[in-house]
């Protein structure tokens, strides 16, 4: 029993690199399975709307825009990133990406519409 038991540890830290990650300067890499921003493959979608049904927060809306053509409106402000929609989707039309830097100054920019402009599913911002 003595005071200052952590003395050796703290003095050792002076010569060690700080554990702090200087975030905006040093980027963090998320693991592969990370559930970040959603990605929608419009070409694969069959419009069953299971994702809409299972979403706990109603963050995803699938609209029919043409014959067998669909678009998805994802509200990133509502999304809780549980990726249940990815599990629910029978055709793998949704995917969780590693993207975590989603902060926006304008709330409207958090609403993202995915429409089928090219096979990749081009992202356009909706205001």
């Amino acid at each position: 029993m003595r005071p200052g038991k952590m003395m050796r540890q703290v003095l050792g830290s002076i010569f060690k690199k700080p554990a702090t990650i200087l975030y905006p300067a040093a980027k963090l890499e998320m693991p592969d399975k990370f559930r970040g921003k959603l990605k929608y493959y419009a070409a694969a979608c069959i419009g069953c709307k299971l994702c809409m049904k299972d979403c706990p927060t109603g963050a995803i809306i699938i609209n029919k825009v043409g014959d067998k053509q669909f678009e998805a409106i994802i509200d990133l402000a509502r999304c809780i990133y549980c990726a249940q929609c990815v599990d629910s989707c029978p055709k793998k039309a949704l995917e969780a990406t590693k993207d975590v830097e989603l902060a926006q100054l304008d709330e409207k920019r958090l609403k993202i519409t995915f429409t089928l402009n090219d096979p990749e599913g081009k992202v356009t911002e909706q205001t």
């Binding site: 554990a19 998320m30 693991p31 399975k33 990370f34 559930r35 809780i80 990133y81 549980c82 990726a83 249940q84 969780a96």
Partner: peptide, 21 residues
């Protein structure tokens, strides 16, 4: 600081640091 190791492991296994889902 040491807890970060476990948080990273949880993110690796489940896909998030908290609310593992």
């Amino acid at each position: 600081r040491d807890r970060e190791a476990i948080m990273d492991i949880l993110a690796l296994l489940t896909g998030n640091r908290v609310n593992y889902g």
